[in-house]
């Protein structure tokens, strides 16, 4: 009798815990993507087997996010966190990780993927000093502006999903194969389309385009921010303007989340185009997925280059 009672209590407790800790979609893998591009990539490879939460959107500066309660709550149950890494999220992700009380997604675990660790980074500074602004000691973190980096991260993501959810390993593999096929075709298309951009000199708002410019063979002549993270000043803009008279550039590029005022001001005076680029998925209407992101980026660059 006693034994039965104990068994019943155990059964009830287990039932209560299962009911309390699982959601209706408890079979699916929960992905917490720090930026929209990784959410889009997880959708491509994960499909219906993953449910994705995107921590930021394209109109937010990913350097300046608050560790909001909603983010902590979402990270609590995540099976996989996809971050850019390279200190892009240093102002908020460490707090989320510590407060999430989730052992599965701590750095070093399978559930923590820092994309920038898997690609070769540019702009690694030889000397680090805050006088130089908000620089990233481990290199430029804005790796998603080169679609070839997306392909590299896709392979890492596939491995992680297969490790976390072996039951659907074949499904992930199939989706990955399908994605890379389409991605390779798109890469060729983009590179053909972007041929006329090769060698063009551009001004950037923030040094966030190193990977894009390297990919397309374009040259970054200067940045509107006097040092990274410090907003453009009038004196810096006028010195840029006088430099432009000596060394003209094809256009000024800025990200969707950045204030267009400084870029428009300078473009108006130098008689060049200021181009808003999506920067990530969702930055413009046309950039609704990863393919749209680069389609629209190249489309906008080409229009500006032809207009000059």
């Amino acid at each position: 009798m006693k034994h039965h009672l104990r068994m019943t209590i155990y059964a009830l407790l287990t039932g209560a815990i299962m009911a309390g800790f699982s959601s209706p979609a408890w079979a699916s893998i929960r992905v917490f993507a720090c930026e929209p591009e990784w959410a889009a990539l997880a959708t491509e490879i994960g499909g219906d087997n993953v449910s994705i939460y995107t921590a930021t959107h394209a109109l937010q500066d990913p350097h300046h996010i608050q560790a909001r309660p909603s983010l902590i709550a979402r990270m609590r149950r995540a099976n996989l966190v996809i971050a850019t890494g390279a200190q892009l999220e240093i102002g908020w992700l460490p707090v989320l990780l510590r407060q999430s009380a989730n052992p599965k997604i701590q750095p070093g675990k399978v559930g923590y993927l820092a994309a920038a660790n898997y690609v070769q980074k540019l702009n690694i500074p030889n000397r680090v000093d805050r006088v130089m602004g908000d620089i990233h000691p481990s290199g430029n973190p804005h790796i998603q502006t080169d679609p070839r980096n997306i392909a590299i991260v896709a392979a890492v993501l596939l491995q992680r999903l297969q490790q976390i959810d072996p039951a659907h390993a074949d499904a992930y593999q199939a989706r990955y194969q399908d994605f890379t096929g389409r991605w390779n075709a798109a890469l060729q298309r983009w590179q053909q389309q972007a041929m006329p951009l090769r060698g063009e000199r551009v001004l950037v708002y923030h040094k966030g385009w190193a990977y894009l410019l390297r990919w397309l063979g374009m040259v970054e002549s200067d940045a509107l921010e006097p040092v990274p993270g410090v907003p453009p000043t009038t004196s810096h803009l006028s010195s840029l303007l006088s430099k432009l008279k000596q060394q003209p550039v094809a256009m000024i590029i800025y990200a969707a989340y950045q204030n267009s005022r400084a870029a428009e001001w300078l473009a108006g005076r130098a008689d060049i185009k200021a181009v808003k680029l999506p920067f990530t998925v969702g930055g413009t209407d046309a950039a609704s997925d990863l393919f749209g992101l680069y389609d629209d980026t190249i489309h906008r660059l080409l229009i500006a280059a032809q207009a000059k």
């Binding site: 070769q120 980074k121 070839r148 590299i152 890469l187 590179q191 397309l216």
Partner: peptide, 19 residues
């Protein structure tokens, strides 16, 4: 091989350790 943008634009390599 399919890189139409000629040699100076090399394919980025995957890397592991950052710092």
């Amino acid at each position: 091989q399919s890189q139409p943008l000629a040699s100076p634009v090399a394919m980025p390599q995957p890397a592991t350790s950052s710092g």
